[in-house]
Amino acid sequence: MSQNYVEARQVSKRFGQHQVLNQIDLTLPAGMIYGLIGPSGAGKTTLIKNILGMEAVDGGTVQVMGVTMPNRPVMAKIGYMAQSDALYETLTGRENLTFFGQLMSVPKAKLQQMIAYTARLVNLTTQLDQRVSGYSGGMKRRLSLAIALIQDPPLLVLDEPTVGIDPELRQQIWAELNKLKATGKSMLVTTHVMDEAERCDYLMLIRHGVALAQGTPTELKRRYQVETIEQVFLKAGRLQDANNGNY
């Protein structure tokens, strides 16, 4: 597929007087891990919701798989992991996976395979038949990730996927995300963790609804003449504040 998985042009969104997103451009081709970094309240989740079509843009356009969003059938091609774990606590892990698999219209035989595969991936195979109410925070996060993968989507939108997951499992998950990338899948990941940002192929620094900088981690570090992405972020933020002060 030659087309870009996600193509956002000049996306703007406001809630009342508050400009949450200001003319954001985002292009996500196949086989890429795209990182959105920025402080909380920067507009990362709003951007994601615009891409998913849960919110309608006020300005600009969003296309996913070449289709203008919001569009309901395209949602089947997006694996979404929300910031908060939206799980049914009285159901078991397997029942949650089955439920969302059915909503995604995964055929019955394939669903069994996918449940086994995703559970193995997030290391939940043995706890799959326990109720979610007994899960730890990390287990719930992992189950949410498994649900995002249940229909084997070409595009994954992961909002803070590794919060509350221990470092060892985080390594495993990133290894798996890279494997998925190798099969041609793309991922849009938001994160706070700067060492995760380093693992992304491409980054967008977003602050106060504005895309401060975009580029590969190496490019960005070179551009701002710093050692880490964290320093890139701090420097770009100071520059933004300085510019705003000049107005």
Binding site: M54, R72, V74, I78, A82, S84
Partner: peptide, 13 residues
């Protein structure tokens, strides 16, 4: 709990 919003992130009508 956010499950409604999560439900609506699937192609369900």
């Amino acid at each position: 709990t956010g499950t409604l919003s999560r439900l609506l992130a699937t192609p369900i009508r």
